[in-house]
Amino acid sequence: MARYGMALDYKNCINCRACEVACKEENGVELGAEKHRIWVGSNNPDGEWPNLSLSSAVFLPSQCQHCEEAPCQEVCPTNATYYNDDGIVLVDSDKCILCTYCMNACPYDARYVDERTMTVDKCTFCSDTRLARGETTTACQATCPTKVRTFGDLDDPNSEISQLLENREHFSLKAHLGTKPKLFYLR
């Protein structure tokens, strides 16, 4: 058993969105802007012309944080949202009743409705595709041209992600909520 997480060297992101395309291709995510498991956020530069803060104009790739204390899992009335043995937060579509409570409870807006199954869908860390085939990377990581993402086992001290988190300062989104996200942004 592993405890999977992802580190994001977000300042390397060039907003090519190859990760979004790779995710859709690999996992059969529906087409359309509203239907996305992962996304690249962008911040317009702060300030007013000509005094713009270029350093504030960053891209922030994101997705489900696979929280250890996931609010979406806590509010799910039928346990459709669950943790697998590797700590990945997944949705059992057979149990999902589409109450959309999880969509409101998720602090990261990481969930959407899959119109084909009419159930809530989200990032799976490619657990039922690439990981199931024995691969060790996610589609978004494998396709990224600037190596923004590093996926791996947080419990393995020798894994690349553990080494990165050991040696680089990092932060998590909305960490004050106590959700214990497993996505880490490298400073």
Binding site: E74, V75, C76, P77, T78, N79, A80, D94, K95, C96, I97, L98, C99, T100, Y101, M118, T119
Partner: peptide, 26 residues
Amino acid sequence: EIGHPITMVIYTALSGHPTSALFWLG
């Protein structure tokens, strides 16, 4: 409003989740 009312009845009974407010309404 709910997407799958029959599934709700079945799985609230079979695998209900006590940390969910919706489960307790059920």
